[in-house]
Amino acid sequence: MKSLKKLFIIPILLFGFIASAQQTANRFFYELSFKPKKDSAKIDKVMTTLDIVKDKSIYQDFTFPAQDSIIKVAVEEMEKTKTWKDISKMIKMPKFSYKITKAYPSMLETYSDRISRNLFGYEENIKFDWKITTDKEKIGEYNTQKATTEFGGRKWTAWFATEIPFQDGPYKFYGLPGLIVKVEDEGKNYSWLLSGNKSIKDWKELTYAEELNAKFGMSNELKIIPKDKFEKSYAAFKQDPMAEARTQVPQNMLSMKMPGSDVTIGEALKTQEKMLKDFFNSNDNPIEVQTTTDKKKK
């Protein structure tokens, strides 16, 4: 039963991070509009957040954190009844699974994501060459000023507000004399717009779902590796996301039923694999079109 829990009780724990003590955070909500497919004009949207605390900021897709209470109730019910339930049918999956941490004041950036059952990341010292212009614009309630830069193979335009005293922004962007209120690339493939903010008392870096990682056999220990190695490992994971899981399930167990369910272990594995492949195949238009490998070829 213990091994089954590790594999299936909450497959959404694929996306995890690293813990920290409670503190107060300034949370900024950014609506991200993006084109998930290169050959399509279709626009998708997702809410993302930038949490700023004393020594760092954390950017992420807010889909999972917003459903934390639903996940908590479902998991507690499974533990109480000793039965398995496919939580993925109850919740909305995120568009992006990575997190980006910027350490203050160095602004060393850490990009992290889960590769199978482990949490990996790489560090970057990005120096944005911002060109601040005299153009100004009212965006929502904020008086903003325009700046441009090139990053990741795209040209970007940002609007920042000096009245918000954080030299930070969504995704990897930072370095302007005020919080970035809006930033988008020239082709409008990705566009972030500040849509709200709030103070979070007793802020915790981990959600309830992420805190369960260790309990169900998924490491929350962040392993820093070179960026090119991360990109290669992640690409291999996308090709076969259940490779590691298959090695942990003996062939004779595949026909066994999940506890309290008519679903077999083999069927649950296939469902989880489809969920992961659908997630990876939903976007072929990356924010950064220039990879580490591309840079080394030049």
Rank of each mutant, 00 (worst) to 15 (best):
E273M: 07
Y59P: 00
D61Y: 09
I126V: 14
M275T: 11
D129R: 15
Y30R: 02
E221A: 12
P94T: 03
D113G: 02
K56C: 03
G152R: 02
G178R: 07
K127A: 15
T162D: 00
T144A: 09
G153D: 04
M242R: 06
T162M: 00
K102H: 13
T110A: 08
N283H: 04
I52Q: 02
F62G: 05
G266I: 02
I58S: 01
F64R: 02
T110K: 11
S40M: 06
I71L: 15
E31N: 14
R114Y: 06
F160I: 08
K277Q: 06
N197M: 14
N252T: 12
Q272G: 11
N220Q: 07
V181T: 05
D278S: 09
V75P: 06
L222F: 02
K127M: 14
S88C: 13
L193D: 03
F166W: 15
T24Q: 07
N125P: 05
E137D: 13
Y234L: 06
G266K: 02
R27E: 07
K198R: 04
M253G: 05
V289H: 04
F29A: 13
L179F: 11
E31M: 13
T63I: 11
F34G: 00
Y111W: 05
G178A: 08
I132E: 03
A268N: 01
Y174G: 07
G217K: 12
W156H: 01
R154F: 02
L206Q: 02
W84A: 00
Q60T: 03
L222G: 02
D240H: 11
Y171A: 09
F237I: 01
K89L: 10
T110Q: 12
D129Q: 15
L193W: 01
Y122K: 14
A236H: 02
T134V: 14
L179G: 05
W84Q: 01
I287F: 08
F28Y: 15
K85A: 10
Q145M: 12
A158R: 01
F237E: 00
K298P: 00
K56P: 00
F64T: 01
P241R: 10
E210K: 08
N125E: 11
L7A: 09
A245E: 06
E221M: 08
S191I: 12
Y59T: 00
Q67K: 15
E141P: 00
A74N: 08
K42M: 11
W192C: 07
K99G: 04
E76H: 09
A19G: 09
K136A: 05
F128I: 15
S282Y: 12
N285C: 11
A209I: 14
T293C: 01
E267T: 01
D284Y: 12
T133A: 15
Y98A: 12
M47A: 10
R114D: 11
Q67Y: 14
G178E: 03
S3E: 05
F230K: 04
F62S: 10
D185Q: 05
E205S: 14
L276V: 01
V75D: 05
M93K: 13
E267Q: 08
S255W: 01
F237Y: 10
A74L: 11
I115W: 07
K297E: 13
G16C: 10
P170Y: 07
E141M: 03
E267Y: 00
F62D: 13
